[in-house]
């Protein structure tokens, strides 16, 4: 499946994703793999808790893939996202874009990551050494619930 959500412990098989978009026509495949980083706005991150509105997230990811195929002369694209409690170093998102040439593959990949962040109904909570924060777009809002 080229569009998919993975609930931890399920994880990406990058070779499988590359296989899904590969064809004799593809001369360049760009891969973006997002990871949980150990720092955010100066705070030490322990883990990220991702949640998704699954049904809509899938539909929105499909629309982004279709948009990328129209906007860029690419051959194919995979958009996968994980959710659940993800520790530092774990995979979060995978975008694979296949093109005849590298330029369109890179450009489509960058565009798709940005669109996923903007539009796909997935949210993360940062668990840090200074407390827990809901991340909403660019904002970090302290979580009132005790963890």
């Amino acid at each position: 499946m080229k569009i998919r959500l993975f609930k931890k412990p399920e994880d990406f098989d990058i070779a499988e994703a590359v296989g899904l978009v590969s064809s004799p026509k593809s001369g360049g495949i760009a891969i973006f793999l997002g990871k949980v980083r150990n720092e955010s706005h100066g705070r030490r991150v322990k883990k990220l808790i991702y949640e998704a509105y699954e049904e809509m997230a899938i539909e929105e990811m499909k629309r982004i893939r279709e948009g990328a195929l129209k906007k860029f002369p690419i051959l194919d694209m995979v958009i996968w996202h994980r959710y659940g409690e993800l520790e530092v170093g774990e995979n979060t998102i995978l975008i694979v874009a296949a093109g005849k040439h590298r330029k369109e593959a890179f450009e489509a990949c960058i565009w798709a990551v940005d669109e996923v962040k903007k539009r796909v109904p997935i949210w993360k909570k940062e668990v840090t050494d200074e407390g827990v924060f809901w991340i909403e777009g660019e904002k970090a809002i302290p979580d009132k619930k005790v963890h």
Partner: peptide, 10 residues
């Protein structure tokens, strides 16, 4: 109908 804050996937 769903109500939700700005997204933060990726």
């Amino acid at each position: 109908v769903a109500l939700f804050p700005p997204t933060s996937g990726g």
